[in-house]
Amino acid sequence: MKKYKLLSLLVVLVLQLSVNSAWSGALDPFAGQKGTLKIAGGTAHIPVIKEAAKLIMTANPDIRITIAGGGSGVGIKQVGESIIDIGNSGRKPTEQEIGTYNLHPVKWGIDGVGVVVNPDNPVTALSTQQLQGIFAGTITSWKELGGKDRSINIYDRDAASGTRSVFWKKGLKKSEVSKKANVVVSNGAMKTAIANDPYGIGFVSVGHIDASVAPVSLDGVAPTLDNVKSGKYPVARGLYSCTKGEPSGLAALLFDFLHSPEGRKIVEEKGFISVE
């Protein structure tokens, strides 16, 4: 009995070693490093950063990485005020922000912003004009779009959201958003809201689309990874991580990791397009 126990322990150890060695190439630079890295901001980034942080912290327990949301605006502001080390942003920081805070944005992914409805909703395709009408509040019932005779519940994001700013600029073409729209605070909250509301419509980062919500084609183009990649789906943006001043230390290592083959694999696995 004891022998088996020892053997299984050995097997586990060997397995663990082999798993570690699979990543060792990209994670090597983290060896011997120590310290904490505080990350906050864009909520679209979270799945990727979380996975990367998990691998890094498993490989080197001396490194602590904390991840928070808040929205792109929060990320930019907090990193600018030196409250955190890395501020994630789902939009390119403005010239003014870069100037006042001496920000260095690093782009490590491309993400689409897709319109989503509840999976029970028969409406799965809209034109830009219809989308504008819905969000402006002029199209008020799903019946007008071929759905049930129920009023449309619009879900919007808060002003600090990078997802929102891209959706508003490229999806809605800067048209008005109804005052009646409900406002939620993250990509995750948007997904929960739409998954729970059979008559809701909202928008999330393409990386967040799963079975709980149904993507809506815009002018005949579905918000899929392939369509974003080929440029056919126009509502897309870069995913940035910003540091105050040149990235250095752990932040620089994290960015290198996200651009390494292993890091890029994580980016792709989480539903985004990686960049060199």
């Binding site: 808060d158 002003a159 005052k179 409900n182 605070v185």
Partner: peptide, 24 residues
């Protein structure tokens, strides 16, 4: 929502929620 609520089944935003949403 940012509209002035007119009935109790209207969506509304409180001062506290507004602070939380705009602080960024």
């Amino acid at each position: 929502s940012i509209g002035v609520p007119t009935s109790i089944v209207d969506s509304a935003r409180t001062l506290t929620a507004h602070i939380a949403l705009v602080i960024a």
